[in-house]
Design a protein around this nucleic acid. Structure first.
Length: 306
DNA sequence: CATATTGGAACGGAAAGATT
DNA sequence: AATCTTTCCGTTCCAATATG
């Protein structure tokens, strides 16, 4: 069960839907929830308030700092939005929805900004699709948009990669298998748009590329961009996955630095082909998604003429 | 009609800023 | 550094409206 199976699921109440989405996204702002659920921000507040009358369902993480550092929030915010995460009382409800045990991981301060940035890629894409399907208040448009969109969180993206690696690892020793699996990349998210998959990396770090990434990955490892790019190659090339990788960062300087780092990685390696990598500031990724869509459409049209 | 959703206005928690 | 004050960003209560 993935995000889109929770959104507008007729078997769930709005409250359950809210908890399910918070679980899938780990941390999310009220505004983002309102777009994802297709309701007003006000109603999100109402649902949260009602839920918390039954226990600690939704936890609030107060305003993320908005200092000198570049941050993905809209300029209307002087501080940051509050972020919600799943509270202890919500756990059992979410377990009933997804059908497996759920663990509440501790979330640190910097992760708030990170999740906000990752979620916003989803929010922008969803809004784009809803517009294409003909309207914001139209619930039909919402459903059709979700028909065209899949969103997998980091853990779900890793599961896909692990599955693809399983046949390769079968003949290897257990220890080696474990080591290889640990070296595989952990994308921040995977999005599938009209059948085209993309791996997503959201980066909120400083302009210095060589510096260790300030955001440790899910295993607590501290990595550099350079390192991550190598891991993408080592992960995707053996399983012949050709989905593009989209890097999103709020800093244009960092975006350009990443581009250079990628050129360097390509020079230092010797593969025949490379996955496509794109480097964007928030919002620019929509052009990539759209361009890709047109490209695949043209291919289809061409093949149909034969 | 019942339930789902939104609106209005007073209220509150946390962080930033000011003052001692 | 400790305490007070202000600001930000919601939160809450409850009534009004929309929707099936």
């Amino acid at each position: 069960m993935q995000l889109r199976d929770i959104v507008s699921n007729p078997y769930l109440t709005r409250g359950e839907e809210l908890l399910g989405i918070i679980y899938k996204l780990r941390m999310v702002s009220a505004e983002q929830l309102s777009v994802i659920m297709g309701i007003s921000k006000k109603y999100v507040f109402q649902l949260k308030s009602d839920l918390n009358k039954e226990g600690e369902m939704v936890l609030t993480h107060y305003n993320t700092q908005r200092g000198a550092r570049r941050v993905p929030f809209s300029p209307e915010y002087k501080l940051g939005p509050r972020m919600y995460s799943l509270g202890p009382s919500g756990r059992a409800i979410v377990e009933a929805i997804v059908g497996h045990p759920v663990y509440l991981k501790k979330l640190t301060g910097r992760q708030k900004v990170h999740y906000y940035g990752v979620n916003d890629i989803l929010v922008r894409t969803l809004q784009h699709l809803i517009k294409e399907e003909g309207g914001e208040k139209d619930s039909m448009a919402q459903l059709q948009a979700w028909d065209r969109l899949q969103w997998l969180n980091s853990q779900e993206a890793v599961e896909i990669i692990n599955q693809a690696w399983t046949p390769i690892l079968e003949n290897r020793k257990k220890k080696e298998e474990k080591e290889t699996k640990q070296d595989l990349i952990h994308p921040d998210s995977r999005i599938v748009l009209d059948g085209q998959g993309f791996w997503l990396e959201y980066d909120n770090g400083t302009e210095q590329i060589g510096e260790p990434d300030s955001e440790p990955d899910s295993e607590g490892k501290v990595t550099t961009i350079y390192d991550k790019m190598w891991r993408y190659l080592l992960t995707l090339i053996p399983i012949e996955n050709h989905d593009p990788i989209i890097w999103v960062t709020p800093s244009p300087i960092r975006r350009d630095n990443m581009k250079h780092t990628w050129e360097k990685v390509k020079e230092e390696s010797s593969y025949k082909t490379y996955p496509e990598m794109y480097f964007c500031t928030p919002g620019e990724e929509q052009t990539i998604f759209f361009k890709h869509k047109l490209a695949t459409q043209r291919c289809l049209e061409l093949s149909e003429t034969y």
